[in-house]
Design a protein around this nucleic acid. Structure first.
Length: 290
DNA sequence: CGTTCATCCTGAGAGC
DNA sequence: TGCTCTCAGGATGAAC
């Protein structure tokens, strides 16, 4: 779940409450939360203890904390993915443990703890060496997101046009552009008036460029409202929900009138998940699909 | 090579 | 009440 805006809300919370502090101990519960850290949870906890958090960074839906060791440079990071239901919470030490508490970080300053709570545990933590560009090597396959200086809007539009691939698949492919998930893909497609099953090769370069602009814009607006939360699962580090859900035009709006033309928003299954769209503003292509 | 699919989990809500 | 079924903001690796 959390898509770029929700992850960015969390990153900002980490920048405000965790950066500059030195980790004292890290408690990891169970083996699943550190499953991507091959040497195991005990090794991860050992590596983290005593390190100072130098920065909180993000690419797409991935977060990481740059870690300094004394005076040394930060050549490693704690890589974090929230999966579908992960939360990072800054809380007093005496706050009761959450039901799905998987990690607890304490700090040398004896201030508030950082906790990783994840109902479904699709998210997780791992140690990651960082490359020359400062990006963890384990996420080298994740493309820049629309807010990254390295993001190449026109290059993507040009390349996408050469392949007959459904446009929503491309939007959701984190190796093409990162940060966009099911909600913001549907919102961007609605704004652009494009059905997600249209082939990228059937769209013009300018149309693809505008679609990417819509994706960036809708995520900017969502960030301005603290992200999208339908329930208590998506919260900032202080446990507060965003309210962009009230501004959604397509996602989750089945049966409600389209804000542009009044036609009822429809839903269909695509890639084993839901897609919401306006049947009139976003006509389904006839040449492909079933 | 590129692309699809099942899978990892827990909980909420609908329908019976 | 309780059961079964469907669905949920994601990413990965195995299988084609």
């Amino acid at each position: 779940m959390p898509e770029l805006p929700e992850v960015e809300v969390v990153r900002r919370g980490l920048a405000a409450h965790v950066v500059g502090r030195t980790l004292q101990t890290v408690e990891l519960r169970g083996t699943r939360v550190a499953r991507r850290h091959t040497p195991g949870p005990a090794d991860l906890a050992d590596r983290l203890a005593g390190r100072t958090v130098a920065a909180a960074r993000r690419r797409g839906k991935y977060l990481w904390l740059d870690l300094a060791d004394g005076e040394g440079p930060t050549d490693a990071a704690l890589l974090i993915h929230l999966g579908m239901s992960g939360q990072l919470l800054v809380e007093a030490a005496d706050a009761p443990d959450e039901k799905h508490l998987h990690a607890r970080f304490t700090f040398a300053d004896e201030g508030p703890q950082l906790r990783f709570v994840d109902q479904r545990t699709f998210g997780g933590l791992a140690w990651a060496p960082t490359g020359a560009d400062g990006i963890p090597e384990t996420i080298a396959h994740i493309a820049p997101d629309p807010f990254d200086p390295a993001f190449d809007r026109d290059g993507l539009a040009r390349r996408w046009r050469t392949r007959p691939r459904e446009i929503k698949r491309i939007l959701l492919d984190q190796g093409e552009v990162s940060g966009i998930g099911n909600i913001y893909a549907d919102e961007a497609l609605w704004r652009a008036g494009i059905h997600g099953r249209r082939l990228a090769s059937s769209l013009t370069g300018p149309a693809l460029g505008r679609l990417l602009d819509h994706a960036r814009d809708v995520m900017t607006e969502a960030l301005g409202q603290g992200g999208t939360s339908f329930d208590a699962l998506y919260v900032n580090v202080n446990g507060a929900s965003g309210y962009f859900d009230r501004s959604l035009a397509a996602y989750g709006q089945r049966g409600r009138p389209c804000g542009r033309c009044g036609t009822l928003i429809g839903r269909e299954v695509f890639m084993n998940r839901s897609s919401f769209f306006c049947p009139k503003c976003q006509p389904r292509p006839r040449t492909i699909g079933r």
